[in-house]
């Protein structure tokens, strides 16, 4: 039963070039930039730190649980309950479907096929991420790391594009947050071992509020 842990598979899955649609999502950064809440690297760091401890932890928990093989229906329902914004639920399912496409090409696996068939409109992205990690031979903590990293990697890249922020400073923000990502991933993986009811549900009011505003903009660069 023990799956081989392959560190390089984790790099493939976590790579920003993995074609799963993430590049078009800012994780709320586009709205925060417009509202003046992100103006520089320090704001970006605070924004990313907040994301990590809220939606990042929640996503990491779901991903870890899916990687452990917990019931994906229950996990998807848990993800719905943790995502009050319909714009973010839609984005999560769309990204889930996009990730599923890439994951099935990368790591063909009957469990992924079954998950895709069960959720033709897409399961929540963290659930698919965990399943993809599982198909790649990775474990729950790997999946949680990947989710945590995505939580901040997306906004950092988006802010580089939106503000012309020095990419070295943006990368330094990510590097400074690395220990927090580790901590969040560890917490998420530990929680996942406790079952669906033990999963974190940390939320961020402003992300929910601005997601709906952003979705209604007539003109925007990022999908969310």
């Amino acid at each position: 039963m023990a799956r081989l842990t392959t560190r390089s598979a984790l790099l493939v899955l976590a790579d920003g070039r993995f074609p799963a649609g993430g590049h078009a999502h800012s994780g709320g950064a586009e709205a925060a930039v417009k509202a003046g809440r992100i103006r520089d690297a320090a704001d970006l760091e605070a924004f990313c730190l907040g994301r990590l401890h809220t939606v990042g932890l929640t996503a990491a928990g779901l991903a870890a649980a899916a990687a452990l093989g917990l019931d994906p229906y229950e996990l998807d329902a848990a993800a719905d309950a943790r995502t009050p914004s319909p714009a973010l639920r839609t984005a999560a399912r769309r990204l889930g479907r996009q990730l599923m496409r890439a994951a099935r090409a990368a790591w063909p696996d009957p469990e992924l096929d079954a998950l895709a068939a069960a959720f033709p409109g897409g399961a929540h992205q963290p659930v698919v991420l965990g399943a993809a990690a599982r198909a790649a031979g990775l474990g729950p903590e790997d999946a949680a790391h990947c989710a945590a990293y995505e939580t901040v990697g997306g906004p950092a890249t988006a802010v580089v594009r939106l503000l012309g922020l020095d990419p070295y400073r943006a990368t330094a923000v990510l590097a400074r947050l690395a220990p927090v990502m580790d901590e969040v991933a560890a917490r998420a993986a530990t929680a996942a071992h406790g079952g669906v009811d033990a999963l974190p549900a940390a939320s961020a009011p402003l992300l929910d509020i601005t997601a709906e505003q952003h979705a209604a903009w007539p003109v925007r660069l990022f999908a969310s």
Binding site: A32, F47, G50, R51, T54, L206
Partner: peptide, 9 residues
């Protein structure tokens, strides 16, 4: 951390 940043409050 981060609760008073641009993502949360």
């Amino acid at each position: 951390g981060g609760w008073d940043g641009g993502a949360v409050l």
